[in-house]
Structures are given as C-alpha cells and as structure tokens.
C-alpha cells in the first residue's frame, strides 16, 4: 500500500481516456445504433403497411370476382331467355308457315282435283257421245242435243 505520484499519473490517464471516449467513441457509436433502430422501425412500419395493402388488394380482388360472377350469371340468364324467345318465335313462325303451306296445298289439290274432274267429265262426255253415235249410227248433232248433253255431263 504505497500511495505515490503514480496516483496522479493514473488520474490523468483516466481523465484522458474518459474524455477521448466522450468525444470520439460514444457519440458516433450511439448515433449509429440510433440510426439502425430508426431504420428497423421504419422497415417494420413499411412491412406492416405493405401487408395492409396486400390485404386490401385481396379484398378488392374478391369483391371484383363476386361482382363478375353475378354479372356472368345475369348474362347467362339473359341469353337463355333470349334463346327461349327466339326458339319460341321461330316455332310460331314455322307453325304459321306450315299451316299456310298446308292450306295452300289443300287449295291446290282441290283445284287440281276439280280440273281433273272437269277434264274427265269432258272426256267422258266425248266418250258418251262417241258411244251414243256408234249405238245410234248417226252423228249426234251437238247443237240440237246440247241440253241433253249438258244434263248428262253434269250427271257424270
């Protein structure tokens, strides 16, 4: 235990060490640590923000998807209705057309039938006259027996 001038030397050394640390070691290191803490904090905040934005975007996508689905079903429904309408109207049109065709053909058939009948009648009349001529061995005067002939023709 000898206290001597070493004590003074050590006090001076200690003071120099502390002052140097105070000036050149502590402030820059602390500043750096603070900067890092700030950076980490801002990074975390940005990450949080990004997560929130992602969530928002996902929600929006979901909403949009739902909306699209609704529209699609609507469109499909419309199209079906339209198709039904078209089919129905086409059916009606076809039905009308077919009826028309049927009536027309019926009319034509009747006309044809009438014409054939008429034709046959005249032919039969001719034949009858020929038959009668052969039977009577005289020529039938058409003008004289016109009334009889007409009566026969109508009876056929």
């Amino acid at each position: 235990m000898e206290i001597n001038a070493t004590l003074l030397g050590e006090i001076i050394t200690f003071a120099i060490l502390v002052l140097f640390t105070l000036k050149f070691v502590w402030p820059p290191l602390n500043k750096m640590l603070e900067e890092r803490a700030e950076k980490i904090a801002s990074g975390l905040a940005a990450a949080e923000k990004g997560k929130l934005e992602l969530q928002n975007a996902e929600n929006r996508i979901l909403e949009e998807l739902n909306h699209a689905q609704v529209r699609v079903t609507e469109i499909i429904k419309n199209a079906e209705r339209r198709a039904d309408d078209i089919i129905l109207s086409a059916k009606n049109k076809a039905l009308k057309e077919s009826e028309k065709i049927i009536t027309e053909s019926k009319l034509q058939i009747e006309q044809e039938y009438m014409r054939a009948k008429e034709h046959l009648r005249t032919q039969v009349a001719g034949l009858v006259i020929q038959g009668a001529q052969q039977i009577l061995k005289v020529e039938v005067d058409v003008k004289r027996h016109e009334a009889i002939l007409a009566d026969i023709i109508t009876k056929i």
Binding site: I3, I11, F14, V18
Partner: peptide
C-alpha cells in the same frame, strides 16, 4: 493490483 490505479479511479 496497484492501489494507486484503483484509487485514481475511485477518487475521480
């Protein structure tokens, strides 16, 4: 282990 050093610090 020198009492001068430790006292220098504690006196400071």
């Amino acid at each position: 282990a020198d009492v001068n050093t430790t006292f220098a610090m504690s006196i400071s």
